[in-house]
Amino acid sequence: MKQLLTLRVNGITHELSIDPWRTLNEVLRDELNLTGTKLGCGSGDCGACTVLVDGRSVSSCLTLAASVDGKEIATVEGLAPSGEQLHPVQESFVENGAIQCGFCTAGMEMSAVYLLGRNNAPDEEQIRAGLSGNLCRCTGYNQIVEAVAAAAEKMKPS
């Protein structure tokens, strides 16, 4: 039997009727056409599908959509809603060479946003730990780590 769900995704409310075995990743990508969130492994090991649920970073591939009924979901598409001004994390990723193939990027950015929300001045080790649930095969991580440090700098309350 389909479940009736209310998801608030990037501030927009969606009323959905969903099979209970659907993951949040499937609902975002297939039902809501929010394909910025990727699927890299399906078992919570790579982080490419990372989104925020009520502010916490989670693997959308291991989250049942039914279990996040009524919650606030944030995806990469919501980081720069105006479509013009990038979020400082996105801006830093662009400027610091943190993006190569881009498949890990959305998940990395969401992990970075989560990290910076908890710790607005992380040191290098804390950044690495914060990103350690996100695999990348292209960049060797170092430019991503630099990008997150740069984003922290930009986001520092003046």
Partner: peptide
């Protein structure tokens, strides 16, 4: 020159479409 990638913005915003998208 350290020119940002041509596709960096599309990838940073999640709008770059891969085959499964």
């Amino acid at each position: 020159k350290d020119v940002p990638r041509n596709d960096a913005r599309a990838k940073a915003t999640g709008t770059a479409a891969y085959a499964d998208d």
